[in-house]
Design a protein around this nucleic acid. Structure first.
Lengths: 124, 124
DNA sequence: AATATGTATGAGAATATTACTATATTACAT
DNA sequence: ATGTAATATAGTAATATTCTCATACATATT
């Protein structure tokens, strides 16, 4: 991780912290990126592995990984010609867990989506 | 773009659940909406109260509340001529807490942003 | 050096979100 | 009924994201 050139040490404008938080949530706000993270919580994976698991084209996977990387959600490490991605903070897994519980509460008990949620929880 | 209302009972396509999760995170992905939620975790507030606390124009507040409402993040209850908004699920507070801890880990210990975080945690 | 493989980035149109302003809508009081 | 305060929505230009391909880059192998 390289140091940002010219970091400023200055007072924070009101709401600036919320801008960062919003950017972070925005990084999660995409179906493909959610799927990527749900795989990565179980451990690091190369782009190729992710690509196979999701059945998506390589540029799609790399592009979405880039979004996560730029927001510092995941880290990338070269392994020869491959690149292994991993969560930068395991708390992201906790975050997804809380989100899942919120869905659990939110969805009506008879919907197909809820059944899907239960299936997902069981797989854990 | 209008949101179709009317829940369907049918098999779930792969990744459809992730679409819902992404929409949920997208609802949080805006500085104003973060600020609104950070107030609402402490209890219900009317639009007017939120407007005053944030120092924003009324349409701005209502518009962002509408986004949260459409995603089921907050509920709205009429009180005479006012409308009181509240979190629909207290777990949203837990979600913001986890997010804050992630930021705490992520930011360098000497940055102004981190000091802001500490201040926030103390208040919270 | 030439090639193959895994990964990253670029450019374009298509789409979605935002900010801003004006106007509706609703409930209450006179 | 008219007025008023609180809230919601509509219209729209500006901006940002996403999707789809094509291509560039880096590393290892021959």
């Amino acid at each position: 991780m390289r140091a940002k050139r010219g970091r400023r040490e200055r007072p924070i404008a009101a709401g600036e912290l919320q801008v960062f938080k919003a950017q972070f949530f925005r990084a999660l706000a995409h179906p493909t990126r959610i799927r990527l993270l749900e795989i990565l919580v179980r451990g690091g994976r190369t782009v190729q592995e992710l690509q196979e698991k999701l059945g998506l084209d390589q540029p799609v996977v790399s592009q979405q990984l880039a979004v996560l990387r730029h927001q510092g959600v995941v880290s990338a490490q070269k392994e020869g010609v491959s690149v292994r991605y991993a969560l930068r903070d395991p708390l992201v897994g906790a975050l997804l867990d809380v989100a899942r519980r919120i869905f659990d509460n939110r969805l009506g008990t008879s919907t197909g989506l809820l059944r899907e949620l239960r299936r997902e929880r069981r797989r854990g």
